[in-house]
Amino acid sequence: MEILVCVRRVPDTSENEIQLNAAGNDIERDDLVYSINEPDNYAVEEALQITAKVGGNVTVVTVGSDDDEEVLRREMAMGASRGVLLSDEAFDGSDGRGIANILKAYVHNGHFDLILTGVQAEDGGAQVGGMLAALLDYPFASLVNSISVLDGGKLKVSREIEGGNKEMNEIDLPCVLSIQTGINEPRYVGMRGIRQVASLEVPTFSASNLGLDASAVGDAGAKVKRTDYFVPALGKGAEMLEGDQEEIIAKLIELMKAKGGLN
C-alpha cells in the first residue's frame, strides 16, 4: 500500500513558552524549539505499522521552506521511504484551503492508496485533512484512533467520539484519514537515525512543478488570514487565595463546606 502522510513542523508547546513579541503582533519566535506536530508523528508511525504488515511505502510531505526539511528527515529516520518538500514563495500566506490545494497537486503527481494527516496542529485548525479529501473527492474520516486493513480495498477505522466511545466505520480506498494521538506508540528516533538520513535527497516541488495557479494558493488565494496575535485582557478569573498554606487550606475548607462538598 502506498501511503502519503502530510506533516507539519510546529513550535513545540511543551518545550516553549509561547509569548507575544515586543511589537505585539506575533509570537516571540527567537527561542522557539520546533518539532513535528505530535498527531502527525502518530500518523507516520501508523503508516509504518500498516506497511510493515501489508507491504508498501510511506512518503512524508510538507508544505513549507527549507527549515521544514528537518521534520521530513526525522520521519525518514523513523522509516519513511521518501520525504518531499513542497516549497515556493507563492505558497506563503496560504490558508487551509491553499495548503490543501498544494497537497492535492502533489497527490495527483503520484499514486497513493491512503493519505493520512494528524488531526490538528498547534497553530492549525483541524481542517487540511477534510479539505484535501473533498478536493480529491475521496472519502474522509477524522479523529481516527484505530485502523485495520480489510480485503477488497477497504479499511475498518474507529473514530474517537464523546464519552470515550468509538465509532466504527468501513471506508473505501483511496481515502483520507486524520489521525488522533494515542493510536499507537511511536518508535524513538535518536540522533543517530537523524544523522543516517542527513545526506539523503529530499526532492522539492515548486508551484510550477505542481502545475499550480498562484491565485489558488498563497496569500493571493487565501480567504482566511490572521491579522495578529494577542493576549486577551484577562477577565475576573478565579479568586486567588492568599496567605500561608495553613490559612489557604482553612479558607478552602470553608468554601467547600458552603458549596456542599464537605459533610
Binding site: 508547546t13 509561547i18 509570537i27 485548525g125 482566511v224 488570514k225 490572521r226 491579522t227 496575535y229 486577551p232
Partner: peptide
C-alpha cells in the same frame, strides 16, 4: 481563534 494550547489568541479575517 486560540492557538498553542490557548496560550495566545489570534484575530482572523475571513472573506
Amino acid at each position: 481563534r486560540q492557538e498553542f494550547g490557548g496560550q495566545v489568541s489570534a484575530h482572523m479575517r475571513c472573506d
